[in-house]
Nucleic acid binder design. Structure first.
Lengths: 221, 221
DNA sequence: CAATTATTCAATAGATTTATTGAATAATTG
DNA sequence: CAATTATTCAATAAATCTATTGAATAATTG
């Protein structure tokens, strides 16, 4: 094989892969599937897309071997084809957060309204778990909690938080986590908790990031 | 800011960033600039693009804040805007190498011809440096070696290797590195060395990967 | 087996991306 | 200041991407 042909093949394949990711909805699909497998209908619902359009985006990801599907009855369950895909999303996301002025601006603006700008890292959380008396809340939908969660965390889906807030002992420090830095559940939870006078902050990443660091997780049998 | 507007803004910005990378030439530019800054002319020459076309691709990368430029005389010197960009390239590249059948096939085919399939990792090289008597060759152009290299390495640009090969003591184990896994210099070097009966293998990553791991490097004053 | 349901397919129009060409700009040299 | 040089800009046509629409498929239910 000639040098030129080699380069052409390699880089055009990699560009194809990159193109498959290069769409706002498909990035959201990747992030959503990092929480576990989903049907076309569920994905379309989450992203407010038509079913046909969601299916089409999934075909693009499948064409790049980034997702795989398993048919059960007349449902197609899509999942990420492998873990490395999440690694790419992670580095892309972090580049955006750390280096893109426009994303930084959007995050600040959104979080100022919610008073949720303060966040702690996974490393800081690990320290707190060892040293302090900290309450960890998983505010994702229960289904996602059940599919795997941080061992010490309680499941309090964001839409149940308002009713269950009384359970929280006064003076208790609370750390809230959700799907990741662009998932608004944790921001909404912090807003709600602070309004009730509870000291709460966000984890700056999500459960998939915790999991990828090979930290202990609780999973169903 | 509404939840929907927040998500729309964030993900469309990230998709813009991804789109800026999603082209075979622009991926090559990112990789090339990871070796140091380059003028438009140099980039066009390396990738066999017209000057106007190379400039246009650079505008796209600049529009996404992925490269910056410094004008000197009538040359524009382009460089990567920050290090996180290389991290994205790295994870994308590794996804391709580890998970894409078509890329794996191309790499195998190319390296079978060059007998350069055997490679060692940076970790293995670090061990060898400590324990064994190993000769490390940097086969990139001299300019790149001078801009920074693995401390123990000798500079033997690939086009000088054939003449200088006599210097190598018999029985000496040789490790060759270049720009990265898709740079063919190390493959060509291994082919040449093996033809002359020298035990040689590639490093499976390149100098930018060594550097990003914060390992010691030799740099000019 | 007809009706229902989840998903995919196919066709289309509008938007975006790409390479090419040649002219415009702006710094340097003679 | 005219000529040269490196780069950018602008215009264009071909290719590709995107959302929408409605029909096709294939599994399940009554």
């Amino acid at each position: 094989m000639q040098k030129q042909e080699f380069k052409d093949r390699i880089y055009s394949e990699l560009a194809t892969l990159t193109k498959a990711m290069a769409n706002p909805y498909r990035l959201q699909i990747i992030e959503l599937l990092a929480q576990g497998s989903r049907t076309v209908e569920e994905i379309a619902g989450q992203l407010t897309l038509s079913i046909a359009n969601a299916s089409q985006h999934l075909q693009v990801l499948k064409g790049a071997n980034m997702v795989s599907l398993q048919k059960e009855g007349h449902y197609a369950h899509y999942r990420l084809a492998n873990e490395d895909i999440y690694a790419v999303w992670q580095s892309l996301r972090d580049l955006g957060i750390n280096r893109m002025a426009e994303i930084d601006r959007t995050l600040r603006e959104f979080r100022e309204e919610k008073s949720s700008f303060q966040a702690i890292s996974i490393d800081e959380l690990l320290q707190k778990i060892d040293q302090d008396n900290v309450l960890i809340l998983d505010v994702r939908p229960e289904k996602e909690y059940k599919a795997g969660h941080i061992p010490q965390a309680l499941s309090v889906p964001i839409d149940q938080l308002a009713q269950r807030i009384v359970d929280c002992p006064a003076g208790q420090e609370v750390i809230v986590y959700c799907r990741g830095p662009f998932c608004v559940f944790a921001d909404e939870a912090v807003e709600l908790l602070r309004e009730r006078g509870i000291t709460a902050s966000r984890l700056d990443e999500g459960f998939p990031d915790w999991k990828r660091r090979q930290l202990p997780i609780s999973v169903p049998l």
